[in-house]
Design a protein around this nucleic acid. Structure first.
Length: 698
DNA sequence: CTAGTCACTTTTTTT
DNA sequence: AAGTGACTAG
């Protein structure tokens, strides 16, 4: 038996031991949220509850696995049978069994974002939509509008109006494409990420008996990161748990950073309405960060328009005050960051140091310097392993074996063969589903085509292990691969080796393919697990993690908060929460770098200002340093402590407001150049500097 | 119909 | 600096 009272604080204890009925746990950053879930899992099993009646929904599969591992250790490894993973992987798991009930075949293929975009591009071409119109939105824009509409469940016209009203003129065509896209997926047995959730809901609604069966099966439901669930996910939970179900949702409204994906804090706020007899538990003691890091983080939230009621109280000692370092350029920033890492590495293991940033590309200069210094690092977020062209090529063969209706994969696979382009593939595909005459003819004259068909038609292939199938695929793919990528051959070969390695842990091809598209792949499978490395990560990918030292880079205007985020009405608020998530990852030390100049894409250096999130901060919560031209770091004294921030906000009271301009339409004031000149962002036109008198403030 | 060339932009975050 | 789209020769 586990001594819960000894291991947990009062609030945690209550969350762990309230196992019947709905419970909402509002868990501030570092308040022992994971610990609570782990102990609750162990406690449930300890009470004799069957592990297979527990469903644990988390943000990544890895998070679920780690929690189960820890719970298992507490108990002595009895956690097998718990279903744990993301909403999407759970939906996949259920839909594989009941696909037929909603008009799919159970070997459906899950498509990722770039697949979706390719489909849209093709549909636009084949249906001759906006053929000559150069300003027609790109496939990525169209897809993101469609996905936003579905995730936020707002009609398409409103979705376009809210974020990019200049595209409203294309509404009809976009609607048409949406319809075509929906039909295409159904016809070819494909589901995108959003379909997994909506189809699960459809199954629940149309087959009450199946829902009842699942409700009985999953008696205890736990959901982590509840603030980042969207509306369908919220409904899925409410169907599955029922009004008085044994459900625990854990989240923190101050850490909501996925609203661009349709996540809404409304799910947290509505929890007590949907589940009438629910208990709300607050975890407010912060065990992670030292006092001064927590003071800094709390100061960030003070500037949020939405007020967060809870105040985190630090348990740990005062610690070192966070430092903000103004560097001369992004290049010197990279050098100084690496020097700092070297200095810190005497006190902290490399594994306990993380460099965080807003967007994937921002770490490139730091990566260069780390390589130069010979320091190992791993990067998370940004470009995905499974989206590299050569990986997608190989995956396409596998998809074809499993789901021959997957036309997208036909194209990828057959277009690799010389002299075969989109038109020929279409003919082959059509022929495959009719009399097969054309197909047989081509096979006779082209043995490369024949080879692929024999792989597709050989039913014994499906029974092989994923690794063995991959070996067969490599045999076919190798010549194309070498021809196509001869310049960066070794790097890409390494990627294929990793894919091979990854596949050997699977026995089932379908599971392998689903996981590749649903879970971020750990692309370091081949490395020594004991090796020490620095972590580089986007803030989004750092969610839920923690390090002794956190270094945040590129803390400048237009990068953080991201320029693009300012299009969205709530963008600024979400960026601020993102900043909060970043700083609360730190246990002991927090360093924030902010370069004074950046290099533009054309190679020109240009001046930037420090991020408004730093400007608005109470000066008492950090120390400020700057890089001198002689290469030293000098402390900057805050002459008027706590007053400087007042000064900068007073004359900018129009900042953040919307205004109208005769030519550019509606725009957002993103900066004040001087009392008479505003910097305004107009969707569709970009940033303009305008005389105050020419704009009308709303 | 395919494949190669040229000019043009664009660079958030993720299941 | 790469990834798209448009155009054209074969």
């Amino acid at each position: 038996m586990i001594d819960l009272e000894k291991e947990l604080n009062e609030a945690q204890f209550e969350a762990v031991t309230t196992i019947h009925g709905p419970v909402l746990v509002i868990a501030g950053a570092g308040s022992g949220k994971t610990r609570t879930i782990v102990y609750r899992l162990a406690h449930l099993v300890d009470l004799g509850i069957n592990p297979s009646s527990i469903l644990l929904l988390t943000f990544t599969k890895k998070a679920a696995q780690e929690m189960l591992l820890r719970a298992g250790k507490l108990l002595g490894a009895k956690m097998e049978g718990v279903v744990g993973g993301t909403f999407h992987s759970f939906a996949n798991f259920i839909l594989r069994r009941f696909a037929k009930e909603i008009g799919y075949s159970s070997d459906f293929t899950i498509i990722d974002q770039s697949d979706s975009q390719d489909i849209i591009k093709q549909l636009k071409e084949s249906n001759k939509i906006a053929t000559k119109d150069k300003s027609f939105p790109k496939k990525s824009t169209i897809f993101s509008l469609i996905s936003k509409m579905r995730n936020k469940e707002i009609p398409l016209d409103e979705t376009i109006a809210s974020a990019s009203s200049h595209l409203l003129i294309y509404l009809e065509d976009i609607e048409k494409l949406y319809k075509l896209y929906t039909d295409f997926k159904k016809e070819h047995n494909l589901m995108d990420y959003d379909d997994l959730l909506f189809n699960l809901e459809e199954l629940f609604l149309s087959r009450k008996d199946i829902l009842d069966f699942l409700k009985k099966r999953y008696q205890f439901v736990m959901v982590d990161e509840y603030q980042d669930t969207n509306l369908v996910q919220g409904r899925i939970i409410s169907y599955l748990a029922g009004k008085d179900g044994n459900i625990m949702a854990v989240g923190d409204d101050a850490q909501s950073i996925y609203s661009f994906r349709g996540a809404t804090v409304r799910n947290i706020l509505d929890f007590t309405n949907i589940f009438k007899n629910s208990k709300v538990i607050l975890l407010e003691k912060n065990y992670r960060s030292v006092q001064s890091v927590l003071d800094f983080s709390n100061a960030i939230l003070k500037n949020a328009t939405e007020k967060y009621e809870k105040r985190l109280v630090a348990v740990r000692e005062k610690g070192i005050r966070p430092q903000i370092i103004r560097t001369i350029s992004d290049q010197t920033q990279a050098v100084l960051v690496v020097n700092k890492i070297i200095e810190l590495s005497r006190k902290y293991p490399l594994n306990e140091i993380a460099v965080l940033f807003r967007a994937g590309y921002q770490s490139y200069p730091v990566e260069v310097q780390l390589n130069r210094a010979g320091i190992k690092y791993k990067k998370f977020g940004g470009l995905k392993f499974s989206e590299a062209a050569h990986i997608k090529d190989v995956i396409a063969y596998l998809r074809l074996i499993l789901n021959p209706a997957d036309f997208l994969s036909w194209q990828r696979v057959f277009c690799l063969i010389p002299k075969i382009g989109p038109k020929t593939v279409k003919r082959l595909f059509d022929s495959y589903y009719s009399d097969k005459n054309y197909l047989l003819k081509v096979c006779k004259s082209n043995e490369k085509v024949a080879k692929i068909f024999s792989l597709m038609n050989d039913s014994s292939v499906k029974t092989l292990k994923p690794r063995e199938i991959l070996e067969k695929v490599f045999e076919i793919y190798e010549p194309y691969f070498k021809a196509e990528y001869h310049d960066d051959y070794p790097r890409r070969q390494a990627g294929l080796d990793e894919l091979m390695q990854l596949s050997s842990t699977y026995t089932d091809l379908e599971a392998f393919l689903s996981d590749i598209t649903l879970e971020p792949v750990e692309p370091y499978a081949l490395e020594d697990p004991l090796e020490q490395y620095v972590t580089l990560s986007t803030i989004h990918s750092a969610k839920g993690l923690e390090w002794d030292v956190v270094i945040l880079i590129d803390m400048v205007e237009d990068r953080f908060p991201s320029k693009l985020s300012q299009l969205e009405p709530e963008g600024m608020e979400e960026e601020r929460r993102l900043f909060y998530v970043a700083t609360t990852r730190a246990r002991d030390r927090l360093y924030i770098y902010s370069p004074k100049t950046l290099v533009s894409k054309t190679g020109e250096p240009y001046l930037t200002s420090v991020s408004p999130f730093i400007e608005e901060l109470d000066k008492r919560v950090f120390d400020e340093f700057k890089e001198t031209y002689s290469g030293n770091i000098r402390k900057v004294s805050h002459k008027k402590k706590g007053l400087l921030s007042e000064k900068s906000t007073n004359n900018s009271n129009n900042k953040g407001m919307w205004c109208n301009h005769k030519v550019f339409g509606r725009g957002k004031i993103i900066g004040i150049i001087n009392p008479n000149k505003y910097k305004v962002y107009f969707p569709g036109f970009g940033t303009k500097v305008l005389i105050k008198d020419y704009v009308e403030i709303e």
